[in-house]
Nucleic acid binder design. Sequence first.
DNA 1: CTGAAAGCGCTTACAG
DNA 2: CTGAAAGCGCTTACAG
Lengths: 334, 334
Amino acid sequence: MNRKNIQRVSMQSIADAVGVARSTVSFVLNGKEKEGRISEEVSLKVRTAAKKMNYQINEVARGLRTGYSNTIALVIADVSDVFFGTMAYHIQEYAESKGYALIIINTGEKQERLSSAFKTIINRQVDGVLMISVVNMEEGKIEQLNPGIPMVYVDRYFKTLTTSRVIINNYEVSKAATQQLVDKGCRNIALISFRETLMHILDRKRGFMDALSANNMLDETLICEADYRNYKEDVVDFLNKSMSRIDGLFIVTGGLSSIAIRYMVNMGIKLQSDVQVIGFGRIDVATGISIPYVRQPLEEICKKSFDILLNRIKSQDDEIVDCVIPASIVTDEL
Amino acid sequence: MNRKNIQRVSMQSIADAVGVARSTVSFVLNGKEKEGRISEEVSLKVRTAAKKMNYQINEVARGLRTGYSNTIALVIADVSDVFFGTMAYHIQEYAESKGYALIIINTGEKQERLSSAFKTIINRQVDGVLMISVVNMEEGKIEQLNPGIPMVYVDRYFKTLTTSRVIINNYEVSKAATQQLVDKGCRNIALISFRETLMHILDRKRGFMDALSANNMLDETLICEADYRNYKEDVVDFLNKSMSRIDGLFIVTGGLSSIAIRYMVNMGIKLQSDVQVIGFGRIDVATGISIPYVRQPLEEICKKSFDILLNRIKSQDDEIVDCVIPASIVTDEL
DNA sequence: CTGAAAGCGCTTACAG
DNA sequence: CTGAAAGCGCTTACAG
């Protein structure tokens, strides 16, 4: 049974109204008058009729015919997280401006949900995927999870996987941030990070360690690598144990920063005097003190990712683009 | 030019492999063996082949044929906001479990973007819309913006518009929250709200005012109605002017709470001793003090909204459902 | 019990 | 310069 309650105007109805073939309507409305060798006059008539009848193309029909749905998918752990949500926002805005709809798929960081995501993506003829992959992925499995359509990895990436990607200069900015703690006079600097196989986390850790090694200050007992399934407890445990020895703290993600700073505020620790902190991403915590952080240019990352993806979709070449966008260390006004 | 690089298995290829008509395949794979009067034996062969060949239905083709895309849209101000992002998360999860994909459309609270949203929705044969409408909508305009497909208003609603909706008990819970401030001994209780035509905001204000009137405590000069385009400044201005006179504060949204609490923390005001606060939505601010708030049961709201929408899509009846889900006042542990 | 056929609304190679 | 026709991958009323 077809959906009868919605009567839409099709190219055929315009063709009937104007008195031409529907192929003519299609050529005109797609701006291919040249290709169809349609006269100025007919062209104008079609346009006018289409506007008057308020024609809206049926993307589903076009999609079936052309193989392109003008839809892209964003695969993400959890849109309700500010970091991911902000990416989703920028991507949707930009995609819309380019005529694309955005399907969002949450994975909850679960590997098995990636394959169901790809099923959806294939079923719906999604044209391309912006992928923020899943935590602690087994290296071998990633390659298999290739839907065979254009895909760009955003923010997170894998060493062994050669796909286009857009990331920030994780190593360099982390090294600089750590050095900044040293420059402020910290001598016992801790790292709060994840136990992870994702490269961006490893790069941040490497930046931290190289900076401290260069200053002969590395103390491996001051490195906390939380388990992502249990990171709140892990961070709190670490701080309970080590806080008294720490005068500087580098934290590699926004989620971890929230936890650590909440803890310190609750414990009455004086931020930026008892202990200097630098986090990743704006600290969304009203401490009454401004805390420097690594600012990731999310809008730029999203637009760049989309551009690369779109180019890949349209040109069908298989060139792999590896784009690094520099992040900077900033301190917001209160 | 068709997309040749992806070779997918169609019902036809299964039909060829098994040696039946593709209509038979369709009946079997849709669980309509009865309707197509297909034998057990053929049915089994088809299923086995489909599994072996890893058949994935083409939803675009089915959509064109049936008129249903198995896609719903969430229209929202801004996914990067925690409140909206959390809704998006729950809706996507639930929709996926029911076989639906979720398209997200941000409006940025702009009226004109609603009509472009509806264009997308129509173009893509979206089956239904979960609508979190736009701020300060002109009443007359809402009715016109009807895409003619099933729609459920979520959280926000209009007085004059009769559509299905899922909301919380804004009036009652706000009255109770305000009364709670009175019970704690506050005598100069302020309201921070928006200058708005949306009913949920008006209801919250009404709850506040009725509670204070009943206690003979209403002071209209302690009501701040911020302009949403400029709400941060408006809130700060109000607090600058009135903070000294206030011992209780009721704040009607999470966004406003953030601003107000940040301000107070920065000014060194002692929360819950200098001034008692109750907000809407969890206070995402590490103050070292736990602040009570109105907890909106977002997952429940989202599921209920989706259920109502789905029912409307499937049954095609025009019954209007008006669902009120009770919110509660809670205080989280630190 | 099963298959051929029409049709959803497009696009585009082809014929005239 | 323009139109008839095929086909994208499905669903389903219909004929046998």
